[in-house]
C-alpha cells in the first residue's frame, strides 16, 4: 500500500482567484478597457440603471455589457435593445462570478475596441462580495425600498465597493429611508465610498453618475 502523505497547504481558499483577478485587471489595464463590477440585490434596478447610463454615455464611450444570471436572458435582451454589445452569462446555479468566469465572459464579448465593460453580477449581497472578478472598480446599487440599514447587515459588500448608487430616490417619501443614516453606515464600512443618489426611472442624478464613470474610464486609459 502506498504511503499516505500529509501536506501543509496554508493557503486562503481565495488565493488562486485573487491571483487570477489581479492578472486579468492588469491585462485589461494594458488594453485600456475599464471593467465595472456592478452588484446589488435582485430588484434594485441594475438593468434600468444601466439602460439610463448607456443612454447618456453611448455616444462618448464604446460600451459592452455582460449580464450574469443563474438562468434566462431577459436582461441581456433589454440591454441589447439599447444598441450596445451585450452577452448573457449563465453561472450554472452558482451565486457569483469569479475571475475565471469573468475572463471567459470577456472572451465571449470580444471587447476589442471597447472602452467600458459593465459586468452585471448575480443579484446577491453576500457571495459576489467575496470573489474578486478582476474588475477595475466595484460598484453596488442599493434601492430605497431595501432600507438604509443594509450596510450594517451586509458589511463585506459595502467594504469592497468603491461606489454606492442609491436608486429609486423618487419613492423615498413612501419609505422610512434615511439618506443621512445610510451615508453614515456606508462610510463606517468604507470611508472612501462615493455615493450617488439617483432615480433610474426619472433620470434624476444619472448625469452626475455618468460624468463620474466617464472620468474613471478616461483616467484608467490615461494611466497606461
Amino acid at each position: 500500500m502506498e504511503k499516505v502523505k500529509i501536506l501543509e497547504i496554508k493557503q486562503s481558499v481565495f488565493a488562486n482567484n485573487d491571483a487570477q483577478a489581479a492578472a486579468l485587471r492588469e491585462e485589461l489595464k494594458s488594453k485600456g478597457i475599464y471593467l465595472l463590477n456592478l452588484m446589488s440585490s435582485p430588484g434594485s434596478g441594475k438593468t434600468t440603471t444601466l439602460t439610463q447610463l448607456i443612454g447618456t454615455l453611448k455616444d462618448e464611450l464604446q460600451i459592452g455589457v455582460m449580464e450574469a444570471d443563474i438562468d434566462s436572458d431577459v436582461d441581456a435582451k433589454t440591454i441589447a435593445a439599447t444598441g450596445v454589445k451585450a452577452i448573457q452569462l449563465h453561472t450554472g446555479g452558482m451565486c457569483h462570478l469569479d475571475a475565471a468566469m469573468t475572463r471567459q465572459g470577456l472572451e465571449g464579448l470580444d471587447p476589442g475596441e471597447l472602452d467600458l465593460v459593465i459586468l452585471e453580477n448575480v443579484g446577491n449581497l453576500v457571495c459576489p462580495a467575496e470573489f474578486d472578478t478582476g474588475a477595475s472598480s466595484n460598484c453596488m446599487i442599493l434601492s430605497v425600498p431595501e432600507g438604509h440599514d443594509k450596510p450594517l447587515k451586509y458589511p463585506l459588500m459595502f467594504q469592497v465597493c468603491d461606489t454606492v448608487i442609491i436608486n429609486k430616490m423618487d419613492v423615498q417619501p413612501y419609505f422610512d429611508f434615511d439618506l443621512d443614516k445610510c451615508t453614515e453606515y456606508i462610510h463606517m464600512r468604507n470611508p472612501k465610498a462615493r455615493i450617488f443618489p439617483i432615480s433610474a426611472k426619472t433620470g434624476e442624478g444619472v448625469d452626475a453618475l455618468a460624468a463620474w464613470l466617464k472620468a474613471e474610464v478616461i483616467t484608467w486609459k490615461g494611466e497606461n
Partner: peptide, 9 residues
C-alpha cells in the same frame, strides 16, 4: 477561509 492541510497518496 483557509486550506490548512491534506492527506493524500
Amino acid at each position: 477561509l483557509n486550506i490548512k492541510e491534506i492527506s493524500a497518496i
